[in-house]
């Protein structure tokens, strides 16, 4: 039996320490993601309270790109989270976002809220049909939805239409929930408004309607 020399011990130790530090770095980085998600929610909650009192958007931190637009509560999952306006790719790190492609909340149309499966929407894997979803708006009454069901779809075959007209809330996250790497599959939970909310939404005019009002001068819009 032969034995390594002290210099080899040192080299080995150094390698092991470097490896360990790298591992530690990755570990911290990985842990920082959920911690950041939770911390951001605390700051967002504060901004949200401000928004609730004066009805204006407030940024949670000065350099933020986005601001809270609603507060989502699913009592049966003990899920409370602040919904952000969609702005660029970073928003999802701090909270669920309301997709700009969908309808604004509180209007007649499909509103979509997306969040990471391993942070804010992790509890969604225990969602059951019939669960109530409450959406607190910046101004106006809290909207209540009831989960009708769920669906697994590909991200580019969601079946959700931009120009929809009946009020529907869709919660979206990646699928499967305990997956390690990102994939093309998305989990969608559909929630339709409860009767009281439906009545309130029935006459709501979507800002999308105002935005998209058709032109008779085609000159501008027909340009490719």
């Amino acid at each position: 039996m032969r034995y390594p020399r002290p210099t080899q011990y040192k080299l080995g130790t150094l390698g092991a320490v470097a490896l360990g530090l790298l591992g530690l770095g990755l570990l911290l980085w990985g842990s920082w993601i959920p911690i950041k998600a939770q911390l951001a929610q605390v700051l967002l909650e504060r901004a949200w309270q401000q928004s609730r009192t004066d009805g204006k958007p407030h940024k949670a931190w000065p350099w933020a790109d986005s601001w809270p637009v609603a507060r989502l509560t699913i009592p049966s999952l003990d899920l409370h989270t602040i919904i952000l306006k969609e702005a660029g790719g970073e928003g999802l790190a701090f909270g669920p976002v309301l997709l700009a492609q969908g309808a604004p909340l509180g209007t007649a149309g499909t509103s979509i809220i997306a969040a990471h499966r391993d942070t804010h929407f992790q509890p969604l894997q225990h969602l059951q049909t019939g669960a109530l979803v409450e959406v607190e708006q910046m101004t106006g009454p809290t909207l209540t939805y009831r989960i009708d069901g769920s669906k697994i779809v590909r991200w580019d075959q969601s079946g959700l239409q931009k120009d929809s007209q009946s009020p529907l809330l869709v919660l979206s996250s990646c699928w499967p929930f305990n997956g390690m790497v990102g994939g093309p599959l998305r989990y969608l939970a559909f929630a339709s408004p409860t009767e009281a909310t439906a009545r309130r939404l029935a006459n709501a005019t979507s800002t999308v309607i105002q935005h998209q009002l058709a032109a008779f001068t085609e000159a501008a819009s027909q340009r490719p």
Partner: peptide
């Protein structure tokens, strides 16, 4: 169609 964003963190 609405395209769904990537919602998984590493």
């Amino acid at each position: 169609q609405i395209l769904l964003p990537k919602t998984a963190t590493p």
